[in-house]
Simulated assay, not measured.
Amino acid sequence: MKSMIKGLLYITAGFCAAAIGIVIWGPRRTVPVSDLAHRLEDAWADHHTVA
């Protein structure tokens, strides 16, 4: 009985995680990934050049 409840809990958690992922990274994203990558690169360079 415990393993059945545990399995149901894992399945429910997986569906919730998938739903959150769809909401966060859904089709409404307006900034392309390449732009995000360039911003990250610039921020990393700024972080390492500022004394």
Score class of each variant (00 low, 15 high):
residue 11 I to W: 03
residue 28 R to H: 14
residue 36 L to E: 12
residue 47 H to A: 13
residue 29 R to F: 00
residue 42 D to Y: 13
residue 43 A to D: 00
residue 24 I to E: 09
residue 40 L to H: 08
residue 25 W to C: 10
residue 5 I to E: 05
residue 20 I to K: 00
residue 29 R to D: 02
residue 20 I to C: 01
residue 47 H to D: 03
residue 2 K to E: 04
residue 8 L to R: 11
residue 43 A to M: 01
residue 34 S to F: 11
residue 7 G to T: 05
residue 41 E to G: 00
residue 51 A to W: 10
residue 48 H to G: 00
residue 9 L to H: 07
residue 2 K to I: 13
residue 19 A to E: 12
residue 49 T to V: 04
residue 20 I to F: 04
residue 28 R to M: 12
residue 6 K to P: 00
residue 18 A to C: 13
residue 24 I to T: 09
residue 21 G to F: 01
residue 17 A to D: 10
residue 40 L to Y: 10
residue 50 V to A: 07
residue 13 A to N: 03
residue 41 E to S: 12
residue 44 W to G: 11
residue 14 G to P: 12
residue 18 A to Y: 08
residue 43 A to I: 09
residue 19 A to R: 02
residue 23 V to A: 06
residue 30 T to A: 13
residue 22 I to M: 11
residue 21 G to T: 02
residue 44 W to K: 08
residue 15 F to M: 10
residue 49 T to K: 06
residue 49 T to S: 12
residue 15 F to Y: 07
residue 42 D to S: 15
residue 11 I to H: 00
residue 3 S to V: 14
residue 13 A to D: 03
residue 16 C to E: 11
residue 44 W to D: 13
residue 27 P to F: 06
residue 5 I to D: 01
residue 25 W to A: 15
residue 37 A to E: 15
residue 41 E to M: 03
residue 31 V to E: 15
residue 19 A to F: 08
residue 47 H to T: 04
residue 9 L to C: 03
residue 30 T to R: 02
residue 39 R to M: 09
residue 22 I to V: 14
residue 21 G to L: 08
residue 50 V to Y: 02
residue 34 S to M: 12
residue 5 I to N: 00
residue 46 D to V: 05
residue 18 A to D: 03
residue 38 H to D: 08
residue 36 L to D: 13
residue 35 D to Q: 12
residue 20 I to T: 00
residue 25 W to E: 04
residue 29 R to V: 02
residue 6 K to M: 06
residue 45 A to K: 08
residue 23 V to C: 01
residue 12 T to R: 05
residue 19 A to I: 12
residue 18 A to R: 06
residue 44 W to N: 05
residue 37 A to W: 08
residue 34 S to R: 12
residue 44 W to F: 07
residue 41 E to W: 07
residue 31 V to M: 13
residue 5 I to T: 03
residue 27 P to D: 10
residue 4 M to W: 01
residue 7 G to L: 07
residue 37 A to N: 05
residue 20 I to E: 01
residue 32 P to Y: 14
residue 13 A to Y: 05
residue 25 W to G: 08
residue 34 S to W: 11
residue 45 A to H: 05
residue 42 D to L: 13
residue 18 A to G: 05
residue 31 V to W: 01
residue 38 H to W: 14
residue 35 D to C: 06
residue 50 V to F: 06
residue 40 L to N: 11
